[in-house]
């Protein structure tokens, strides 16, 4: 499903503040696996995730996701690729705080001009699934941390992506909410999705439904 070959990522190449984020990474993740990327902050987890999600390009190497060479795609194709295949849950959720939950959830679908009825039905299912139906019209900035995260997860699922990528999802949550998040991930795995979670939260390290744990340090696996 996801294959990384000899990936190197260097920021600010050939400048005085050059910084090597990833060095020669090789990685294979099969379909319907849940992978935990483990490591201290600054170890390159986020960079690796953004490369897989085609948010940026590797300096060297190749990334193949679902048979597509993501690292060689043109700008607009990467956007289409993300829209269709990837659900991203960001560390700070990256919700647009002045929009309400509903508007935030439909954001990824807007460019493809969705059918209004289907979309509403889909959003309602998601809202129910994460029990935030009563917050549908509330502005995101007025929601609690846990609610915000559920909106973010709902948003990542709106396009029915095959791959879900979560970057430090529990960094801003207490233990109870983190456990809830883990349950949600388990549910998603049962729906045949491939999941990658980058975290340094110990709660993730002993999960029975976790397929691989990859330890990262200073850009190495």
């Amino acid at each position: 499903m996801i294959e990384c070959k000899n990936i190197t990522k260097i920021f600010n190449q050939n400048r005085h503040n050059e910084q090597i984020a990833l060095k020669n990474i090789n990685l294979k993740i099969k379909k319907n696996e849940l992978t935990v990327l483990r490591g201290a902050s600054g170890s390159g987890k986020s960079t690796l995730l953004s490369l897989i999600a085609a948010l940026s390009r590797p300096t060297k190497g190749e990334i193949i996701v679902d048979g597509k060479r993501v690292s060689k795609m043109l700008e607009n194709s990467t956007a289409m690729f993300r829209r269709e295949n990837i659900g991203f849950i960001f560390q700070k959720y990256n919700l647009i705080s002045t929009l309400n939950s509903y508007e935030n959830i439909i954001l990824p679908t807007i460019p493809s001009n969705p059918n209004e009825k289907e979309l509403t039905r889909h959003v309602d299912t998601l809202l129910e699934m994460f029990s935030i139906t009563n917050k549908k019209e509330s502005l995101v900035k007025n929601l609690s941390g846990g609610e915000q995260q559920r909106v973010a997860i709902a948003r990542s699922l709106i396009n029915n992506p095959k791959i879900i990528i979560a970057d430090e999802p529990t960094a801003n949550l207490d233990k109870k909410l983190s456990l809830e998040f883990i349950k949600t991930m388990q549910k998603l795995k049962q729906q045949n999705r491939t999941i990658i979670i980058a975290t340094h939260d110990p709660l993730f390290f002993n999960l029975n439904f976790c397929d691989n744990i990859i330890e990262m340090k200073d850009g190495h696996i």
Binding site: N76, R82, E84, F90, P108, I110, P111
Partner: peptide
């Protein structure tokens, strides 16, 4: 905001 939209799969022309 522009960054978020891009990450969510918006094209530049969108």
């Amino acid at each position: 905001e522009i960054g978020v939209l891009k990450a969510l799969g918006w094209k530049i022309d969108d």
